[in-house]
């Protein structure tokens, strides 16, 4: 399977993904970059909250929670 462009909504527990770029650079995406979601960064989805959002990802060796719907400016691809 080849890595494919994906939506944050498609992420499930156990998914591995990589940041490929940004749709828009604003306050929001800048903060996500500072938290470690830079181009090329890989992460694993650890947990999904009971109501479907937010999600917990493991990124650069730490656990970060973010809302899927607030992360859409970050382009990702799901890794096989």
């Amino acid at each position: 399977m080849i890595a494919s462009e994906a939506k944050w909504q498609d992420l499930k527990v156990g998914s591995r993904a990589r940041v490929t770029g940004f749709r828009k650079i604003g306050k929001l995406s800048k903060r996500l970059m500072e938290m470690g979601l830079t181009v090329g960064a890989e992460f694993t989805v650890q947990k999904v909250a009971p109501l479907g959002d937010p999600i917990e990802i493991v990124l650069r060796g730490y656990r970060l929670c973010l809302r899927k719907r607030e992360s859409d400016d970050v382009r990702i691809e799901i890794l096989p």
């Binding site: 604003g26 903060r31 996500l32 938290m35 937010p54 656990r63 929670c65 607030e70």
Partner: peptide, 11 residues
């Protein structure tokens, strides 16, 4: 004014 994303670290 701009809303901030909800970012939370689980220590």
């Amino acid at each position: 004014a701009h809303r901030l994303p909800f970012l939370l670290e689980l220590p």
